[in-house]
């Protein structure tokens, strides 16, 4: 209970454990419908429900839910068009899907005992997916010109290989930082929440013993205040990280969509 790491434990739901298989290359795979899958499914269903309710009877004068949906839509739409430019509309569905899924998983983590985005597997999937899309679009649109991304024409000729090498590695690191940023924020936030919540429980236990232990009461109260403040901060972080993920996806897409004619 007091283990702040225990919340990240992946456990198959009862009756949905299909055992382990060993595949070549990938290694051992545990086939099961776990709590992580459940959280992802919930987020997925909630996103669809939200979008369905907010758009099913879309009117020119929006209702409350439609206004909320349109705010999200408009935010990502503006983002895509201001960063990617005219082609932004083509990539909008991808960025919007990414944003809504990450946002809903983050927010669900504030209400459930399990946060899907605190699983590195999940954030790495998002990161690699974005990265793969960027590479595929880059090569499909520019052919071999894609590698011009690593040939900085603005740098002196002598330095270009060095700068290009650095560019190349920082490009390769993109999915890693994308995944780690989201993962680390969610992990850190939830660990801190659990640690402070654990303080309250154990300090109250000390206080209940009476005597000198009563001095633990103000500290417990302090911990409670900390938990409340951290909860508010985590809601902000949940939104901010989804937004940052969307912004970075747009920036990375812009790199390859508008390659060679920077704007």
């Amino acid at each position: 209970m007091a283990d702040p790491i225990h919340q990240f434990q992946i456990t198959p739901l009862p009756g949905l454990d299909f055992g382990e298989v060993t595949l070549p290359v990938i290694g051992t795979v545990h086939l099961a419908f776990t709590n992580s899958h459940l959280a992802m499914t919930l987020a997925f269903v909630l996103v669809i429900a939200f979008l369905q309710v907010s758009t099913s009877r879309a009117q020119v004068v929006p209702g409350r839910l439609q206004a909320a949906g349109e705010t999200m839509f408009g935010m990502i739409d503006n983002l895509a068009q201001s960063i990617i430019g005219h082609d932004g509309r083509k990539y909008f569905p991808f960025v919007f899907t990414l944003f809504m899924l990450v946002l809903m998983m983050n927010l669900l983590g504030m209400f459930l005992t399990f946060t899907a985005t605190s699983q590195l597997a999940v954030t790495a999937t998002f990161g690699v997916l974005t990265f793969a899309l960027v590479v595929i679009i880059g090569i499909a649109k520019n052919g071999l010109g894609f590698f011009g991304l690593f040939w900085p024409t603005s740098a002196p000729l002598l330095l270009r290989p060095v700068v290009g090498l650095i560019e190349f590695f920082s490009f390769l690191l993109r999915p890693v930082t994308l995944a780690l940023r989201l993962f680390g924020n969610m992990l850190g936030g939830h660990v801190a929440l659990k640690i402070f919540a654990g303080f309250i429980v154990s300090l109250m236990g000390v206080a209940l013993a009476g005597g000198v232990g009563l001095f633990a009461l103000p500290v417990a109260a302090l911990s409670l205040g900390m938990v409340i403040a951290l909860t508010a901060l985590e809601f902000l972080v949940a939104f901010l990280q989804a937004f940052v993920f969307a912004v970075l996806a747009c920036i990375y897409l812009n790199d390859v969509v508008n390659l060679g004619h920077g704007h």
């Binding site: 983002l79 780690l180 940023r181 993962f183 680390g184 924020n185 850190g188 940052v244 912004v247 920036i251």
Partner: peptide, 20 residues
């Protein structure tokens, strides 16, 4: 504001890396 958050996120990522 968009640039602000992107910059903050990029800087924060390295701290998160240390934390992880």
């Amino acid at each position: 504001v968009g640039n602000l958050f992107v910059g903050a996120a990029l800087a924060e990522a390295l701290g998160i890396l240390a934390f992880v």
